[in-house]
């Protein structure tokens, strides 16, 4: 067995950077698309009647019960059957987005359900339309609570994007597999690939943390202004 050779990574750094960039591109696009899709699905599930809710449940149970790689194969090999031919990278983005939208939709729906019903009713009672009630009363209140579950799901999304290597999307894992094929230095290569995934996930988590701190700031400031509240409730100080 040969020695661990870190110089190999330096030599192949451009490949890693290219793969990392492609992964970031896919993840950002899939996140935006999947989240938007999730919001739409969650809101549709609140339409009157039992049917919308049931349809969402079926959608999410189906998607959540199969591994991502299988969902990917179904979409990738299935689309041409319906005469749809897309560049592989778009298939990759759409598959990830559709797969994750089921999770995002359930998280968003859960956050809305957790709000007291009176919040929606009081907005409707003053004459706001359901859309206005969502915009002014519901959305601002669920946003903060949605950050932690959305972060977890997005970290999973980043890691699941590695599965895209199996349909030859040249993202990080795929580049790693090529490097391994060229060098047979699996340990060095996949250690480096891990480091890049770790960096991507850490950055995402840090961003989410900042976002959460910022969304807490106005209320935290108001609490600190109130002496009685400050005396009886111990709130974590949220730094600026």
């Amino acid at each position: 067995m040969s020695k661990f050779d870190p110089w190999l990574i330096v030599e192949y750094a451009p490949h890693l950077a290219l793969g990392a960039w492609r992964t970031i591109y896919i993840v950002v696009a899939a996140f935006l698309l999947g989240y938007a899709f999730g919001i739409v699905l969650a809101l549709l599930s609140f339409l009157p009647g039992r049917l919308p809710r049931t349809l969402l449940t079926i959608y999410s149970v189906c998607l959540r019960s199969i591994p991502f790689i299988i969902a990917l194969f179904i979409i990738y090999y299935g689309l041409p059957f319906f005469g749809v031919r897309l560049p592989t990278i778009y298939v990759a983005i759409v598959s990830l987005a559709v797969y994750k939208s089921a999770y995002y939709a359930e998280a968003i729906r859960g956050a809305i359900v957790a709000l007291p019903r009176g919040q929606f009713e009081s907005a409707r009672a003053v004459g706001m339309s359901p859309a206005q009630a969502f915009r002014h009363v519901i959305a601002p209140q669920i946003l903060r609570g949605l950050i932690p579950p959305s972060t977890n799901l997005t970290l999973m999304l980043i890691k699941e994007s590695s599965v895209l290597s199996s349909i030859a999307v040249a993202e990080l894992t795929y580049q790693g597999l090529i490097m391994q094929g060229n060098t047979y230095a699996a340990l060095e290569v996949f250690t480096a690939v891990s480091a890049v995934y770790w960096a991507l996930c850490s950055m995402t988590a840090w961003l989410a943390h900042r976002l959460e701190a910022r969304s807490n700031a106005p209320q935290a400031a108001a609490i600190q202004r109130n002496r009685i509240a400050a005396r009886y409730l111990s709130f974590e100080r949220v730094g600026k």
């Binding site: 009176g118 009713e121 009081s122 907005a123 009672a125 002014h136 209320q219």
Partner: peptide
């Protein structure tokens, strides 16, 4: 005016 008031806490 609701029993639970339902002010908007945000």
């Amino acid at each position: 005016v609701f029993q639970q008031l339902n002010l908007w806490p945000h």
